[in-house]
Design a protein around this nucleic acid. Structure first.
Length: 488
RNA sequence: GCUCCGGUAGUGUAGUCCGGCCAAUCAUUCCGGCCUUUCGAGCCGAAGACCCGGGUUCAAAUCCCGGCCGGAGCACCA
């Protein structure tokens, strides 16, 4: 009986992690050269989620060892902390690689002593030629003493950038050229944003990350497929040191329809070129941009966990994230009237002076009163679809018949919603003439219009502009409201 | 050139390790209908996929071989 029922259970959420029963230590290890993106969110959420599931520690580690090509930004360290916390993944420990160079040096020296590393003085091109031919370079057989002397020359300034690197001895005839004697340290004289010119010998990723994972007792690593070779490269280092390598899992590249493929460096260039107002511009695929737009952390979490961890390269749509968010936000978001590109409508007849409008169609969130009367505003989008003689209902106000479009005039033909139903009238929203100017910042531009004055009270909240979409009220100063668009 | 990984509906995802319960899961999207004082939500329904070709087997999405397509590494980047 048991066997029959067992196998069919569909996997909900994340797949089990092998060897995780006793708890796990996992890390998310970004280079802080910009703020966390949606891709970072995946790393933060999945790693921390596994830690929540099995118990253990979630670490945030900054792999900030390139002060030149991927120069860290000082502010970004804090951004990662902030965004991790917002995503519900407060790290148990924060490690910064640029603080730990002395420890790395110790391991480097140990490796030299163990004949697992050597200082290579080939220039880049000639080493590549030798490597491609599976031939050792002339420095490979130097004694530990010779290597130590050269290593000290790297440290003390006798050697200049480009004149020497420390290489890890692997297998020079390995059939995969990517694994042959990789570089572990190089000389960099540029200053580092955090530690200045304190160090002139900097580790490269495979060394720093590999050593650090061991130091920290990381049990499981999830990383991009592009770093698949890292495990095999670092495997040689681990062998030299007699360490045991963590379990690794890989995931494919993630692309988002609405943003294309993005890298922090590319975004940084676009930002510097003035294509965006900031890292939280609604067009940015950053966590802070989504937050500003009113996307909930929980929506992101659910989405990422549903995505899971696969080696397939994927191309996702923001629509899925929006759908997740809508489920969370819809029941609690107040409804508000906002008319885009407003047009003034003069109505003859007995139009109520105010309208009493519920904040939510199904939830009991109360009512607000919106001033109405013989002059109101309707949206330019609705105006385009009107014809003289046409009838429609102004939501929660009255039913009207248009007498002319230019000038825009109508006549109130009743206030009973039942009448509108019977006549099958379209229903549109509207705004008072003394409403508040609203600017909606969208990924694809800016919409302007007028909203009901009460919008000012919803500062920081997500509301639904009826028939327009969900927005987060970002600011309400100088008589103007700025809202950030989330999604329809 | 050398090396590695992947390929289930429009998009993701489950199932692949240990072949039969898979005429294939779930979500989202799209399309119909209902409902609704929002073009939102809700409800009902429908459509939609195992990259191709061989092989093994009573039986293949699942194993093997070949091909095709996609991604990645071969940096003194992360």
């Amino acid at each position: 009986m048991a066997e029959l029922g067992e196998k069919k259970e569909p996997d909900k959420g994340l797949r089990e992690l092998e060897g995780a029963e006793g708890g796990v230590v996992m890390r998310f290890a970004p280079n802080p050269n910009g703020p966390p993106t949606i891709g970072s969110a995946r790393g933060i959420i999945i790693n921390s989620e596994y830690v929540k599931r099995y118990g253990g520690k979630f670490l945030l580690r900054f792999d900030d060892t390139d002060p030149v090509n991927k120069r860290p930004m000082l502010e970004a360290y804090g951004w990662y902390l902030e965004d991790s916390e917002w995503l519900g993944a407060v790290p148990d420990e924060v490690v910064i690689a640029s603080d730990r160079l002395p420890e790395y040096y110790e391991i480097a020296e140990e490796l030299i002593q163990r004949k697992g590393a050597y200082v290579c003085r080939c220039d880049q091109a000639s080493f590549k030629a030798l490597k491609d031919a599976a031939k050792p370079c002339p420095h490979r057989d130097q004694s530990p003493e010779e290597n130590m002397a050269l290593w000290n020359d790297m440290m003390n300034g006798k050697l200049s950038p480009g004149e020497a690197v420390l290489r890890i001895k692997t297998d020079i005839v390995n059939k995969d050229p990517a694994l042959r004697d990789w570089a572990a340290f190089r000389i960099v004289t540029a200053d580092h944003p955090r530690v200045g010119e304190k160090y002139r010998v900097w580790p490269l990723l495979d060394f720093e990350s590999g050593v650090e994972d061991h130091f920290l007792g990381v049990t499981h690593i999830i990383r991009g497929k592009d770093l698949m070779d890292s495990e095999r490269r670092q495997g040689y280092l681990y062998d030299h040191m007699g360490w045991e390598y963590p379990t690794t899992i890989h995931w494919g590249r993630i692309k988002i329809h609405q943003f294309g493929s993005f890298s922090t460096s590319a975004l940084r260039r676009a930002l510097e070129a003035g294509e965006y107002a900031g890292w939280d511009d609604p067009g940015m695929p950053t966590v802070r941009a989504l937050r500003r737009r009113g996307i909930r952390a929980e929506a992101l979490r659910k989405f990422m966990i549903e995505l899971g961890v696969g080696e397939t390269d994927i191309s996702i749509s923001m629509e899925s994230i929006y759908a997740e968010n809508r489920k969370i936000v819809d029941p609690e978001a107040k409804r508000r009237f906002f008319v885009k590109d407003p047009a003034t409508l003069v109505i003859e007849g007995d139009v109520p002076k105010t309208a009493k409008v519920p904040f939510h169609p199904t939830q009991d969130l109360g009512f607000r009163e919106i001033p109405a009367g013989s002059k109101i505003l309707i949206s330019g989008d609705d105006l385009k679809e009107l014809k003289a003689g046409g009838k429609l209902r102004l939501k929660d106000l009255c039913n009207i018949e248009f007498s002319s479009l230019d000038p825009l005039r109508a006549r109130c033909i009743g206030i009973d919603p039942q009448q509108a139903k019977d006549m099958k009238l379209r229903i549109i929203h509207w705004a008072p003439t003394d409403g508040v100017p609203v600017k909606v910042m969208r990924p694809d531009g800016v919409d302007s219009g007028i909203g009901e004055a009460g919008i000012k009270d919803d500062l920081g909240k997500v509301v639904q502009f009826e028939r327009y979409g969900f927005v987060r009220i970002d600011s309400a100063a100088d008589g103007e409201v700025v809202a950030y668009f989330a999604h329809r």
